[in-house]
Simulated scan of single mutants.
Amino acid sequence: MTFPPLRDELRGLEPYGAPQLSLQQAPVQLNVNENPYAPSEAVVADVATAVAEAATRLNRYPDREHVELRERLADYLTADGGARVTAEQVWAANGSNEVMLQLLQAFGGPGRTALSFAPTYSMYPEYARDTSTRWVTGRRDDEFSVDVDAACALVAAERPSVVLLPSPNNPTGTALPQATVTALCEAVGDDGVVVVDEAYGEFRRAGTPSALALLGEHRNLVVTRTMSKAFAAAGLRLGYLAADPAICDAVRVVRLPYHLSAVTQAVALAALRHAPELLGRVDALRAERDDTVAWLRDQGLEVADSDANFAFFGRLADRHAVWQGLLDRGVLVRETGPDGWLRVSIGTPQEMTSFKEALLVVLKEEQR
């Protein structure tokens, strides 16, 4: 046997990850949808105090049920989603990535199927692979929307135990209507769970509701969030879900003991204390996104409607050449999704100016 004795389906695979380059290589980094605004000195000071206090108890295990954190997250979700969420409906983990993996561990597995609609988040099939869950993808239409009738027909044919629906979608930024979520929850029924991944939910446009408002109507609905994006806390690694308490109890069965460190819990609670400030740049980022979408369309490019903090644009004859041309000029964007498309995160006004100036030069060169 070849060493190491890796599972056959994992041989030859590369670890997931977007390119991580130094600021010297790419001074303008717009490829992983981070919030470009660092925490203020007041937030940093509160985090430092919270960590110092947690450090006095590092000889003890943390609260494995992270009760206080779940209570504060429930309060935040109630305020943001417009429907009452209780602590018993909330569960948190190390980033929404771990939340998703725990959901697949609990509800996927051998003999079970997970389903999504491409283009979709590129980690989803890896969660399925890692939990030995069969993976099936339907297709989105040319506007990157989900056709409800076709989606329900696919559910009826495949009988998935997990349906993954990013809204806003990554990489396109497309939000799902509540009617689509309701139709899929009803199609799946008690045979599975429907996971609406709202990693970018705080960036949704006015009038775009959160799926949180549907929790009381569908006991098989799970809504996931993260503090990595709007909260400007990608380095914290804190994701969470809201669902029926029975779903939270099921996820608790597969979680590792004491999976959230005392330091993680302390920092997350400090961030929630400063939620208004940390979320204070969201409106500006929304406006910058809308300006960027309009500008890209003015250049003759096709751009998906976005409710996220990024813009997905195409159709480029040679997207890799455009990606490389931007990188050669110090601007890093993401080469993801269908061929011919690129995704740019929304940065500061200065960063977006650098992106636009570089893209104009690259597009002119590509037209020669």
Rank of each mutant, 00 (worst) to 15 (best):
H259I: 02
S116Y: 11
A199Q: 12
A157L: 09
Q25G: 12
Y200V: 14
F203W: 13
S22E: 06
A213M: 13
K364V: 01
R129Q: 07
D197R: 10
D291Y: 04
V47P: 05
E143Q: 10
W91V: 06
E217L: 13
K229R: 15
P209W: 02
A199E: 13
R139T: 04
V32D: 14
F313M: 07
R159N: 01
A284V: 14
A175V: 03
W341E: 08
A321N: 12
R134I: 14
V223L: 02
E351S: 15
E143P: 00
T336Q: 05
P349S: 10
G82I: 03
Q265D: 10
P338S: 14
Y200K: 12
V253I: 11
A87M: 00
A179F: 00
Q20I: 11
L58F: 09
A118K: 00
D149I: 12
G108A: 09
R281F: 07
A199V: 14
A262S: 08
A246I: 09
G330F: 12
V263G: 13
D191Y: 04
A287K: 06
N33T: 01
E88R: 14
P62N: 02
A271E: 05
A187M: 10
D339G: 07
A234G: 13
P160Y: 10
A317K: 07
L103Q: 06
L13G: 01
A151I: 12
L115G: 03
A304P: 05
A45R: 11
P171W: 08
D63G: 11
R112D: 08
P39K: 06
A106G: 05
G192M: 10
D190N: 10
V67N: 05
G12L: 02
W91Y: 12
V333P: 08
G189S: 15
R252P: 04
D307M: 10
S96F: 07
A358T: 02
E357F: 00
V361H: 05
V263S: 12
T182C: 05
P257A: 05
A153F: 10
R334P: 00
